[in-house]
Design a protein around this nucleic acid. Structure first.
Lengths: 205, 205
DNA sequence: TTAGAACTGCACCGGTCAGTGCATTCTACT
DNA sequence: AGTAGAATGCACTGACCGGTGCAGTTCTAA
């Protein structure tokens, strides 16, 4: 059907394999040969598609970041301003926590951390394409909650930032940067604590 | 005087150079030759002192972590329970922020993030030797503030974790993992926001 | 002054890896 | 059937780097 069917399949297979291998071994130690073997593809094919190792890395990371963005946005946008704020925040907190603690999300953040020196633009790309958008979306929702009389918020952007902080920082600390998987019970506990503190600070009674 | 004077000097010079080079280039790309050149030392001397590249890395990171620990502890222990809580928290927040946003602190966290896969024990070492101790110390101080009637806290450990979260997570986001230096004004703003929210949640009136 | 330890400079080995060249095979479209 | 573009397999180069060996030098302690 599609004239480039085979090509696209290969391209996707390469991207998947690339992220897997880079995430497991790190950028430098990961060899293009390994990526090729994992993708079931000749090394030449990789160079045909992506030019060199760095471009391959960029493409793989960008793809994952886009993926993460859509999942995070979906989580935030499930926050309905007409519901009970405690319940609503707990649910969105739980969903965001799930996104944040996903295996691939950890890997993505690790890679960005590790390689930011060598590819500074990548930082900016991912941040403005994912992190900032999620924060903005969350700020919007919180503003609507405030407008509905459920929250006392002066600056929605700050509130969003802090809600995120109360969620993510404890996960960073407790999961040892993603190497220890957080048990469901602890995950719920952190989320609970975050929502509780957030509502004590910004709730309406 | 000291019989090993020259040795100790070399050792320290090597550790300093090692951290500098590792922080700049990353563990893998950094070559032992570069470290030797930066330290003004023969490559052999490095191998005499540290055995191999990995041990050198571990030693350099551990040294920095110890350093960071003492500075963080000093910041926390300046929190006096007899003062006005808003003022006291702002000051300790400012000091902690300064520690956290120090150039070397960013580099240390980057290296830990990047190399955690290859050296898992390092994670645990640094975390239990620094992060956890700082959190415990902060929890202690917050408990005393609560006891003095200045805070309404049920679990001091959670409160400490969340105070840290409100500080560090915004810095992570805003400084792009340490590549952009945060202007003093913004630094004060984040600290202010953190203290304000913390007190809205846990303050006594 | 002397013995011994630490340090230096240099050359070398072995291994890894990004990227290329080439001849061949496969696949899709006409 | 035929052709062009994509994919393959393989061999190869050029570079880098961790680690070692060795011969010579400097420093220190007695």
């Amino acid at each position: 059907m599609t004239t480039t069917r085979g090509r696209i399949d290969k391209r996707q297979a390469i991207l998947d394999a690339a992220f897997t291998v880079f995430a497991r071994d790190g950028y430098r130690p990961a060899s293009v040969d390994t990526v090729a073997a994992t993708a079931g593809v000749a090394k030449h094919t990789i160079y045909n598609h992506f030019g060199d190792k760095q471009s391959l890395f960029r493409a793989a990371v960008s793809a994952l970041a886009d993926d993460a963005l859509t999942r995070n946005l979906a989580a935030v946008e499930s926050l309905r301003p007409d519901r009970d704020p405690a319940e609503a925040l707990t649910e969105v907190g739980r969903k965001l926590a799930e996104c944040y603690c996903d295996e691939k999300s950890w890997a993505l953040r690790r890679l960005l951390h590790a390689e930011l020196a060598s590819m500074l633009e990548l930082q900016d790309i991912v941040r403005e394409r994912a992190t900032d958008k999620v924060n903005d979306a969350l700020a919007d929702r919180l503003a609507r909650l405030a407008l509905a009389g459920h929250l006392r918020i002066t600056d929605p952007a700050v509130a969003a930032e802090q809600f995120g902080a109360l969620l993510t920082a404890p996960f960073d600390a407790r999961s040892r940067l993603g190497t220890r998987k957080i048990p469901a019970k602890e995950l719920a506990e952190v989320t609970q604590n975050a929502v509780q503190t957030f509502l004590r600070a910004f709730g309406n009674q």
